[in-house]
Computed example of a mutant assay.
Amino acid sequence: MKFAENSNQAADYLRRAIPLMVRYNIPPNPLNYALWYTYVSDRMPELNSVLDKTVNTYGTCPVMVSEQLFREHMIKDELESAKDIQSNLISLMNDLHDHAHETAKRTCDYSEVLQDSLSALSDGEYSELPLESIIQNLALNTEAISATTRQFQTRIDEAQAEIATLKAELQRTRQDARVDPLTGLFNRRVFDSELQQLISSPDSVNTTIVLLDIDFFKNFNDQYGHLMGDKVLQYVGKLLKENSAEPILSVRFGGEEFAILLPGSTLEDGARLAESLRDKIQAIRIKLKKSGEVISSITASFGVTQYRSRESADDFVGRADSALYLAKSQGRNQVQCADESTPAI
């Protein structure tokens, strides 16, 4: 996206953007400056609408949302290539250049042949070449230039397909660092980043965490194998994704443990979601192809807690972990909520 303001207008936009970023606790990085500079300039109403809804929901604009909005609204027409993808694009362009050069050379040669043939035809009976020879020479060169043009067009078609593949690869590369490949959920890195920003906002007390851990998962892997264990993780990931409408964020926390971040939600909201997921997980049935055995022993334990004012992120997660430990110690397949007296692990 290009900015065409003069220095006075640009300075005015920046003076208006900075107080908004301070008010909503937006980190002062170049990406956010660009977003909020664009916001106060009113040049992109759709972006303004999304930012308004975001701060109304979160009390801020979380890092993950900021990055997504920047990609979708600020640089959607630009291709930011990683080194290997950029190298592939350069190679592709060089290849097309070589094909274009060869096609141009053959076109030039054909032009000379055509000119010579026209000259011979205009000489008529004084030409040293018989008419049949002139026509045959034209036909051969016409076929040659047609073949060259077809080859070039084919290479262009192939190049378009390669570019589409490279774009898809670029998108996948951008996601890899943030997404767990097995479940398709965001990973711990995204969770930590979002949590840190949420608890720094004025509305942080309305943030709830749900931690869940699949019961006896090691025993399950030992009995049925890691492939079946992966299948269970995928089922649970799918359930979390289906029950995590925005602004809820579900992530794979690590191993068989998952976390759900609920901005603008109470402890009761988190407990209701946890109980619903607990019920759906224990309803999972997996039929083994070889033996026909139906596995119906999959359950999960849950720990839920709501943020305390001025609490650190580690203490916040630690209290949820304490509630999860309590659920495990009291028989598993249950939801436990951390109260004011619950210490962080």
Rank of each mutant, 00 (worst) to 15 (best):
L96C: 05
E169D: 10
E340S: 13
A300N: 12
D315Q: 12
D215V: 11
F3Q: 06
I298T: 08
D203Y: 06
I286M: 12
I135D: 00
L212K: 01
H226E: 03
F70S: 07
V236G: 00
R272G: 03
A159F: 05
L239M: 07
V63Y: 04
F316I: 10
P62S: 07
A164S: 15
S201W: 01
A104Q: 11
N6G: 13
R308D: 02
L211Q: 04
F217W: 07
Q160C: 11
S301E: 07
P27L: 10
L227S: 09
A144K: 15
Q282P: 00
R272Q: 13
L20R: 09
V22D: 13
G292S: 07
V335G: 02
T149S: 14
D95P: 01
A320Y: 02
T142A: 15
F302E: 02
S117Y: 02
L324Y: 08
S291L: 05
V40N: 07
K2A: 10
G237A: 04
A4L: 10
P45Q: 07
R106I: 06
S301G: 10
S291E: 01
Q282D: 10
P247K: 08
P30V: 06
D95Q: 14
G229S: 01
K53V: 05
L166T: 10
G124Y: 04
I18E: 00
I260M: 15
F258G: 03
T54S: 14
T207C: 11
L240A: 06
L79A: 14
L89K: 10
T103R: 09
I248D: 01
R308K: 12
L96H: 00
Q330M: 11
K76I: 11
T165L: 15
V335W: 01
T154W: 02
M93P: 00
L14Y: 14
Y126W: 09
